[in-house]
Structures are given as C-alpha cells and as structure tokens.
Design a binder for these strands. Sequence first.
DNA 1: CGCTGGTATTTGGTATGCCAATACTCTGCG
DNA 2: CGCAGAGTATTGGCATACCAAATACCAGCG
Lengths: 227, 227
Amino acid sequence: MQTFTIKPIVPATSLRTLAYEALKSAITNMDIYGQTGDVRLDERGLSQTLGVSRTPIREALTVLEQEGFVRNEPRRGVFVVRKTRKEIVGMIQAWAALESMAARLACARASDEDLKCMRTMFPEFFEGTPADHLAEYSEANIRFHQKIISLGHCEVIQDLCSNLLMHVKGVRNIALREGDRASTSIAEHIQIIEALEARDADLAERLVRDHGLGLAIHVERYGKHLE
Amino acid sequence: MQTFTIKPIVPATSLRTLAYEALKSAITNMDIYGQTGDVRLDERGLSQTLGVSRTPIREALTVLEQEGFVRNEPRRGVFVVRKTRKEIVGMIQAWAALESMAARLACARASDEDLKCMRTMFPEFFEGTPADHLAEYSEANIRFHQKIISLGHCEVIQDLCSNLLMHVKGVRNIALREGDRASTSIAEHIQIIEALEARDADLAERLVRDHGLGLAIHVERYGKHLE
DNA sequence: CGCTGGTATTTGGTATGCCAATACTCTGCG
DNA sequence: CGCAGAGTATTGGCATACCAAATACCAGCG
C-alpha cells in the first residue's frame, strides 16, 4: 500500500502575496468609519514593520488599489479609502444584479441535490427568532448569498461578487440591527429557496434582485453613519 | 482685467501608467486567438523596448494581471491569457446582469433630455441596412451599450462593465458577422430605447438582459474559434 | 508678530544590482 | 545514437540606492 502522500505544491508564497494578505486583513478588520481623518500607509514604515523591503509592499499596495481598498495620491501617499454612502449603494446594486443573474442561471444549471440541501444548510431560517442570535444569523446570511452565487456556476460572477462582498460586509451587519430587517429578510430568503426549488428563473431572479435592492434602499435611507 | 489663465494641473503621468497603457493597447489590439502557442512577455525585453527600467514594467504587469489580461507563472514568465469560451460566456452573462440593472436604474434616474437624445445618438439603427457598414455599426453598437450603462448613474456598474467590455470587445465583432445577429440586434436595440422612453423598468431590464444573454448563447453555440 | 522666501527633510517613483530557481546546452558515457 | 548530468545562461523576486517632487521648517525682513 502506498503511504507516500505528497502535498500538491509548495509554491512558498511570495513576499508580495504575504504582504497583500497582511495588509488586506488589517484594512478590512479596522474600523475605518469609526475614526476621523485620513489613514495613511507609509511604505517605509510598513516595510520596516513587516521586515521586508519596499518592493513587495508597493506591489501589494498596487493590487489593493485595484481592488478599491486604498487610493494612491501621487507624491502624497496611499490612503485607506472611506466609501461614501453612494458608493456602498452602488456596490449593493451591482451585487444585486450579479446575484440575481446567478439565481437565474442556477435554475437551469444547479443539480437537484444542490437545490435540495438549501433547506438543511440554513436551519436558522426555519426555526426560532433571529433577533436572539444576530451574530450567527449574520453568518448564515452571508453563506446563503454565497451559496446562491455558487449555484450559478459562473466563475466571473463569483469573483466579482466576492470582491464586492469584502467591501460591503461591514455594512451588512449594521443594517441588520437597524429597523426590522432581520425578520423580513428571513421571509424573503425562504421565498427565494422555494423559487429555486421550483426552478422558476424569472421569479428567483426577481426575488433576489428585490431582496438586494431592498438592502440598497435601506442603506440609502438609514446609512447616516456613513460619510 | 485678468487675462492670466492657468491650466488646472499637469500630473505628468507616471512611467508606470504609461507602461500600463502601452501594454494594454498592445494586448487588446493583438489577435490573441489568431495564433497558436503562448505569448510570453519578457520583463527585460519590454523595459529595453520601452526605454524604462523593469520596476514600472512590473507594476504595470501586476495591474494587468489583476484585470485578467495576463497570467503570471512564478519563475516561468508572464503570458497573455487566452480566454476560454466558457469564460467569455461568463463575462457576457455578468455584463448582461449589470447592464440590465443599469437600464432599470436609468428608468428612475435618467433625465428626460438624456432619454430623448437616444434616438438621435444612433441614427445607424433607424436607417439603411446594417450589413453594408458593419464596422460603423459595430462602433455604434458599443456606444449604445455604454450609453445605457452611463444612464444608470452607478459608478460601480460602469467600472465593472468597462473592464468586461475590454475583454469581450474582440469577440463581439466576430459574433456580429456570424449568423443573422446584426439585423435582429438592431430590432432589439429599438425596443430597448422605447422601453427606456416609457420608463418601464421591468421591461427595459428584461429586454437588455435577454439581448445580452442572446449574445452569450450565440457565442456558446458558434464560438468554435475560441479555445 | 506675521509673512515671505529659501532650505532641509520626507516620501514616492525609478533604476540597478544581487540571488536563487528554472531552463538550456553541451558533453561524455552507455 | 540516445540519454543523463553537470555547468551555464536566463529570468523573476527582492533589496537597495538614487532622484525629484512636495512638504515642513526656519530664518530674516517688514
């Protein structure tokens, strides 16, 4: 018997990738909206803190700028971006568009097993009151939307959405606590599951879109804490 | 009287940006699908050709990799990516999702003047046969879709779509020549304009989506020249 | 005391050099 | 003639050095 298992590869992730991940997690975990004034990232300071030279730092910052996490003002520095309410709303709208398309595609592409396990994957939606466990519900909420997107089997849509999600994640949780969103949100989720099970593409698309746009309207109305 | 007018600023674009634009136009203008074998970009060769050092070249390549134009195999080189048919189809589907959302938003947000000038902006759609001037029609075609996207007044959607368009542009023209797409395409465009003028969000969204998905199906079926 | 002009310092952009890993080549042995 | 292996060349990743722009600071003048 062969007990000789090898790991697929060990590319020994480059310093650039490590710097990218370190900076990205630092940015997404910080409370950018909780403080005033611009947050500037000093290349030399970062390279000294992380123990690498400026080159991989700069390359990592270039990627983060592409993804919209930082903004580079020539000859002035690179700053963590603070999204305006309008931008957040736009992201949610784009997300709603992509996710509703994923739902449409899922109705044609998803396997019966995948659709069937939607109910078992999210027991939180079918039992108890969400107000009690907002933290777990918020987790399930994100998993739910990611599941829909993955059922569409469209790589491009998945990639675009995962990036949008990174930016919007922080706002979602806040929005849940405001108003009466949690309970109405669950009802809509259940409707979406039913539409998918019925493979009703038009209905699933519409429900997902309206669900997303509902969040957009909510943020637009109650998102005073932004900007 | 003050006759002393000054220009706002002259940021004097950085070498990195110049290298990025040079490489991007070179990549998008080359016929990547017309030749076999991988196309490799040599950092040192490029820096010599463009007359700059490797640093800005590398940063430009990093951005292009993020945008999906090149792929970097560590220790092997950076290659121009050849999209598979499946990826192209996915991009068109994502695009259809975003553009249809833009159309929906346009029905609520666009000004009467903007909607009114749609007919005058695209005289090609209303006169003559498209088969005669495919080149000009193809130009008008792209302008038409960009116009719809801009009417949605959603920056995020515009940015995402402009990137998708860069990748799909080459395929569009080929698709127009195959089958009977040009003339049916025009009829659909006119319907879209009418829906926008009526500010019928549901209809406009549906028409734009189906128009885009039609192209996706067409590419999926006839895109033998890909991959 | 405030403003102006110049200088010093900081900082991002670019160039260059080094290193390790990979690819290539050429030779020698079977 | 073919294949293996060593040695060489190439190439990408990273570090460092240098430069020019922008800012901060300071002195001198009003």
